[in-house]
Design a protein around this nucleic acid. Structure first.
Length: 704
DNA sequence: CAGTGAGCGAGCTTCCGCTTGACTT
């Protein structure tokens, strides 16, 4: 009997379909051994010796593994082909051979002995196909000690950072706080962005457009709009109303002609197939899903066998899947949509570990109209996400979409009658647009807002008539706050965190109340700012954006056997330990700023009312707590009257599930409620109108 | 995950990365 051990039970089920009766499959459900939860578990005095214990939740799996092992002659450790998978493989072997006391005590005596000629071997494969598995079984090896050491180093370093710094925060800031290589940097990104926004100085600028007319026949004229881009060969930068007025004055007294018309063909590649990160970004942008939700929906698709594994950083595609989709494209859309050769996508991230494939449908014939989930709780959401994954995958193996781009440059010269000007001025104005002439992969993922640019047919030197000059006041905008999509994108780019941790990390920093989501955007809280400044101020090097990248380089060397992991840890730990000691001794406890309401406490008449944040959100309390325990509800007004009853104020409230919504302060008399912030109407209508007329951006880029 | 309305609350906690289930703050 042969036993194959993998990490995911779904993977086990899929593989069992390929294999005959002489193979059985078991899943570990992730790590089965780890450092203990309630102690450090690292002996820093003795070369960082880690203490690995059985993960409590996995005792059932371990028991089953051992039982199955007694029936086997050959065991294949087929955990994922990466650092973590190698460590799991080692732990499985230890557990099966009964090398840990806790397992021995509880279960060993009850179990039958292992087969005397038992072979335990490590195998790896990158795609879940019969061929890949058979190939892997042909080339078994033993567990790679160096790769396991790299995992130990990663684990120990994270444990030391997290379990040394968190208690320091309890002492110096507040109980229950936490710090870590990943979460602290994530908060740092949000804090620094917020400060950039606060420091941002808005600058005024103006954009100028001309509505021009061309004679297309004796009876017909056509109007189009051009945007000012240059004057006297310099980029047109118009800073205020006065400057804009001068330009408008000039343009109203100018002669217009076509300077040139440039046409070129533009080919656009399809996007790579989804990874965890890009899938989460797409679902966030298109449907405003949280990464947690996207991952849950993807999990249900994976469990139904509809998609490949959803926690991956790889864009690798199995050859068999590519062959099938190529046949599908040819049959369904025709040969002109099929490239000569299959497309390959390079992995973008340096730290990608190539353990899994890209996220793709397992059966390309399962089109969205045939799609049906037999069970699960996300039936309609699953269909939506599946459609996205399906389209992305099919499109990624189709030919380029082709556009004709036209750029019309118009020259405006002030007429000689304008006498007040020192010299005559030459302006360049431009209209541009792209027309799709062959859809290619856009057949499957159509452009979201495609409009024909509607440029006139004009020739060089053709004279034009001015209809109207339009000027528009604009202001430069600060960088945007992060949302889940842009945060994940940034983390991935920095190599911080893994596909399995993006969603949990985003949850953690919110549960700790370091950041909060406001209309989908992340803002730091006073706690977040205080903790960030404390940690960055004292431990800059660990939370440097480059730290993880450097760590990965070191781990690579450990994995290659070029370096001892204990040596790497020593280099990290000795300066860190010194710093810890000095901060422990010298740093004062820092106060988290509280928002003051500027009112005396009605109970003790001595303290002041302040806003505090408890487990369930904000509340008002006396500044003299715990001497005075006065408290009341916190009402967050947004400075607007209720749009329904017009009497109460609009206030921010939260549901039982902590979701934010807007309500009326005179509830329950007035029952008005809304998920979205009520908008002040009128202000943006004009903006939209002008934007619509601008030819420079006729359609929004569509990345879905 | 879907989720629209009480009143609680501020002192024994924490990391990252694998994997699923599970009614909760």
């Amino acid at each position: 009997m042969n036993l194959i051990i993998v990490e995911s039970p779904t993977k086990a089920r899929t593989l069992s379909r390929f294999l005959g009766k002489d193979y059985s499959l078991e899943a570990t459900y992730g790590h089965i051994k780890d450092l203990p939860k309630s102690t450090l578990g690292v002996d820093v005095e003795h070369n960082f010796k880690p203490e690995h214990v059985v993960v409590e939740k996995r005792e059932k799996e371990i028991k089953r593994l051992r039982e199955q092992a007694t029936k086997a002659d050959k065991i294949y450790l087929a955990t994922d082909p990466d650092r973590e998978g190698e460590a799991i493989a080692k732990h499985v072997e230890e557990v099966i051979r009964g090398q840990e006391p806790e397992v021995n005590k509880k279960t060993k005596s009850k179990l039958k002995p292992l087969s005397s000629n038992l072979l335990i071997r490590r195998i790896v494969f990158h795609e879940i196909t019969k061929e890949a598995l058979e190939e892997a079984i042909e080339h078994p090896r033993s567990v790679d000690k160096n790769l396991v050491n790299a995992q130990i180093a990663r684990r120990v370093l994270d444990r030391l950072v997290g379990y040394k710094l968190s208690p320091l925060l309890w002492k110096k800031v507040r109980r229950g706080l936490s710090a870590g290589r990943v979460q602290t940097v994530t908060v740092r990104l949000i804090v620094e962005r917020e400060r950039e926004i606060a420091a941002f100085k808005q600058e005024e600028y103006w954009e100028i457009y001309c509505n021009l007319k061309t004679q297309i026949s004796k009876l017909k004229t056509e109007e189009f709009i051009v945007k000012l881009i240059k004057f006297d060969d310099k980029r047109a930068e118009i800073k205020n109303k006065k400057e804009a007025g001068i330009v408008v004055f000039d343009l109203e007294k100018s002669d217009y002609k076509i300077a040139d018309v440039i046409k070129k063909e533009i080919r656009k590649n399809p996007y790579p197939p989804f990874t965890t990160s890009t899938m989460a970004q797409a679902a966030a942008r298109l449907y405003h899903w949280s990464s947690k939700k996207t991952m849950s929906v993807a999990q249900s698709l994976y469990e139904q066998g509809l998609i490949t594994y959803h926690r991956t950083d790889s864009t690798y595609l199995a050859q068999t899947a590519v062959d099938k989709v190529r046949k599908f494209i040819e049959k369904e859309y025709g040969g002109q949509y099929l490239p000569d050769k299959a497309r390959f996508y390079k992995v973008r991230s340096k730290v990608a570990q190539e353990a899994h494939e890209a996220i793709r449908p397992t059966n390309i014939g399962m089109t969205n109209d045939k799609f049906q989930m037999t069970n699960g709780r996300f039936v309609s959401d699953a269909k939506v996400l599946y459609g996205l994954i399906w389209k992305k995958f099919v499109a990624c193996q189709m030919v380029d979409s082709i556009f004709d781009e036209t750029v019309i440059n118009v020259q405006a010269k002030t007429t000689p009658e304008v006498k007040d000007l020192p010299t005559s001025r030459v302006y360049v104005l431009r209209a541009s647009g792209q027309v799709m002439k062959f859809d290619g992969w856009r057949k499957v993922i159509p452009l979201s807002k495609y409009e024909e640019p509607g440029l006139p047919m004009v020739g060089k030197d053709e004279a034009l008539d001015l209809v109207k000059v339009l000027s528009e006041q604009k202001f430069t905008e600060p960088p945007p706050r992060y949302n889940e999509a842009s945060l994940i994108k940034t983390l991935e780019k920095l190599g911080i965190g893994r596909p399995s941790t993006y969603a949990p990390t985003i949850s953690t920093i919110q549960v700790r109340q370091y950041v909060e989501k406001d209309e989908g955007k992340f803002k730091p809280t006073p706690v977040g700012l205080t903790v960030n400044d404390f940690l960055i101020g004292n431990f800059e090097s660990i939370f440097d954006y480059q730290f993880t990248a450097q760590m990965e380089d070191d781990l690579d060397n450990v994995a290659k056997g070029n370096r001892k992991w204990q040596e790497m840890m020593g280099e990290f730990y000795s300066p860190f330990e010194k710093k810890l000691e000095s901060v422990e001794k010298k740093a004062k406890r820092v106060e988290i700023p509280v928002e003051k309401l500027g009112k005396k406490c009605p109970k003790c008449k001595d303290g002041e009312l302040v806003v505090r944040v408890g487990r369930f959100g904000k509340f008002v309390s006396c500044s003299r707590f715990p001497d005075c325990d006065y408290k009341e509800k916190y009402l967050e007004k947004i400075g607007m009257k209720c749009p329904d009853c017009k009497k109460g104020d609009v206030i921010v409230k939260t549901t039982k599930r902590r979701r934010k919504f807007y309500g009326c302060s005179s509830y329950p008399t007035c029952k008005w409620a809304s998920w979205n912030k009520p908008e002040i109407k009128g202000a943006t209508e004009k903006d939209k109108e002008i934007k619509k007329k601008t030819l420079s951006k006729l359609y929004a880029p569509c990345n879905d």
